[in-house]
Design a protein around this nucleic acid. Structure first.
Lengths: 191, 191
DNA sequence: TGGATTGGCTAGCGATGCTAGGAACGATAG
DNA sequence: CTATCGTTCCTAGCATCGCTAGCCAATCCA
């Protein structure tokens, strides 16, 4: 491969990143409704069709943002668990708290990950690594005897429900900490 | 008011119902993406603008379907709880099972209630009665000492998370019963 | 029977996601 | 240095979306 085409590929990768970050910023500042292909193209200072030379469609762009979100979430959860590395109540509380904080701090990102139609596939062999990493953080909060995966699924479900019901004002946000404490108290391995 | 205008008002109310049920049927058979104002108008054999003489917009139509869903869900949860009228584990298991069954049996309806943009407002004074009724069914599964509302919120959150993660294939559906058992075992008042 | 009112329709607006087709650019061979 | 060839990217447009303006006809009251 020539140096020229290497440079071009590098530039292409840069533009790929530019599109993803522009979509994310636009969604975070004005909501996903504002992320139209036209506005996104204007933002990256290219015409509309170049988006389609990088992504199969809008769903793929949302998927790329969502994948970025899963990476950051995995990092946050991992950081929280390193504060309490042993399975048990403290670990679970730290990880669950980090999860809810993330969802509340990055609502647009969270929507891309769970609400919006995107092209990510779950619970299959080709599940992207960052998503598995998120799940594994929950798994490691429970002792390997017992059934850590089952507990992790229930934990994740409950947190997701709390996050989305809180985001859409179906439950009061002020009491989120109490709900978190209750959930952890009931699900965590002792101690 | 004359008999003539009474008849017209009756016919209007009929057409109102017709629109809501047509929207629901279309969503259940082909998904909400297929529910466009044009297809809906064609289905009820009127032109597009008549929809807007009944509803403020598409969100209001979705909201009407969602409200219908909350009514049916409240009935299902109430029926389940009447099988085990005392607060406790049996009541909670029955109600939670009915909730998950409902979400799995009526995915389009469930989407209208929780996923899609609609014009229903929650956690406020004007929360529609069927929605309060759903919540109250969870509350009554817990003893009035303790904190039944808090437990109800966590329960509902967990169920919602399980329903949506299962619907979008983020967790395996086959293990839903195990998750349900675990959730109930951990949250229910003894016995 | 004539004039006002109401109700529904046709037609169209702006915006959406996405695509075809050609223009202009840059790399390479003579 | 020039001519050719690919590639890249833009202009323009399609079908469809939610929604609305404005007219036409049927209906109601005098």
């Amino acid at each position: 491969m020539s140096a020229v085409s290497e440079r071009r590929e590098r530039e292409r990768a840069q533009r790929h990143r530019l599109i993803v970050t522009a979509a994310r910023e636009l969604a975070e500042s004005e909501g996903w409704d504002a992320v139209t292909t036209r506005r996104l193209a204007e933002r990256v200072e290219y015409s509309q069709p170049v988006l389609y030379s990088h992504f199969a469609g809008k769903e793929a762009i949302v998927g790329a943002v969502a994948l970025e979100g899963f990476g950051e979430l995995a990092a946050r959860l991992g950081g929280a668990r390193r504060e309490a590395p042993e399975p048990g109540r403290a670990a679970l509380h730290a990880v669950c708290g980090a999860y809810l904080d993330f969802a509340e701090a990055h609502p647009a990102l969270y929507q891309a990950m769970f609400h919006l139609p995107n092209d990510l596939r779950f619970a299959s062999d080709e599940t992207p690594a960052p998503m598995r990493a998120c799940f594994d953080e929950f798994v490691h909060c429970f002792r390997p005897d017992g059934r850590p995966e089952l507990f992790a699924e229930v934990t994740w479900s409950a947190l997701h429900g709390m996050a989305v019901l809180s985001d859409t004002a179906r439950v009061r946000r002020e009491e989120q900490a109490e709900r978190l404490d209750l959930l952890v108290a009931r699900l965590a391995d002792a101690p």
